[in-house]
Amino acid sequence: MNRALVQRLGFAFLGLITFVVVVPILLVIGVIVARGIVAINWQFLTTMPHGGMKEGGILPAIVGTLLLTLGTALVAVPIGVGGAVYLSEYARDTRLTRAIRLAIVNLAGIPSIVYGLFGLGMFVLFFRFGTSILAGSLTLAIMTLPVIISTAEEALRAVPQEFRTVSASLGGTRWQGIRTIVLPQALPGIITGVILGLLRAAGETAPILFTVAAFYLPRLPSSPMDQTMTLPYHLYVISTQVPGMPLSIQYGTALVLLALVLSLNIVASVIRRHFRRKRQW
């Protein structure tokens, strides 16, 4: 058989499979946008749910997700960036360093529901935080760590070694070099990593099932010790636990969650692209 023909058929086949992979992705987005958009209006976004959640808006779920993400950031960013600085700037290739890397790989692989169990056992019960934004934020923060550490470390390592050498040759200490040169240069990459980690946390349901989530709580949380509704859990509840729920509200909630997560995703890649183009090295 003609080799050129085989190649052309082969490439066409690969293209077809890629098509099969890509089309459902667009279909998911398309269907949720098309069916959800009708439910979206100002009232849906800014009022409390009522009538057994079949009427009204989803404000407490939106606010809950934002607060939870903020709490996650407050815990995960300092630990994650600190850990990345250690791995990139201080750690030598020792047994201990390899253990740290293995721990990160392992943390990244632990199922989200197991994080939920851990959060329940440690924060809710052992520390007696109860089901609260605090307990949920801590649980999500630990889950988010591996993403932040790996991307931040990659960004720090991308800063050329010469920058550190020059800083040291001018009499700067190692920390001065990190603080004034390496960290600022790596900042866009670090921010990208932080956003990617946080959007994962914002969309997670399993870790917050037993640590934060309130089935139906039509008021805004007033302290970190409060329970709260959240978008992902609310979507789960209204699509599986409430019979007779109007589909438009379900799709509307899915759309709000999807829009929140994807817009963060876009922000992250815009930052990455913008600074990669601007970078001199």
């Binding site: 969309g203 992902p232 995703n265």
Partner: peptide, 24 residues
């Protein structure tokens, strides 16, 4: 074009995919 589309899939929350799976 392909890379960002695949990245988008990685970002879709699992509860949204579950919901889509249930209803579609």
């Amino acid at each position: 074009i392909l890379k960002p589309v695949i990245e988008v899939l990685a970002g879709v929350p699992s509860v949204v995919l579950g919901f889509f799976g249930m209803t579609f």
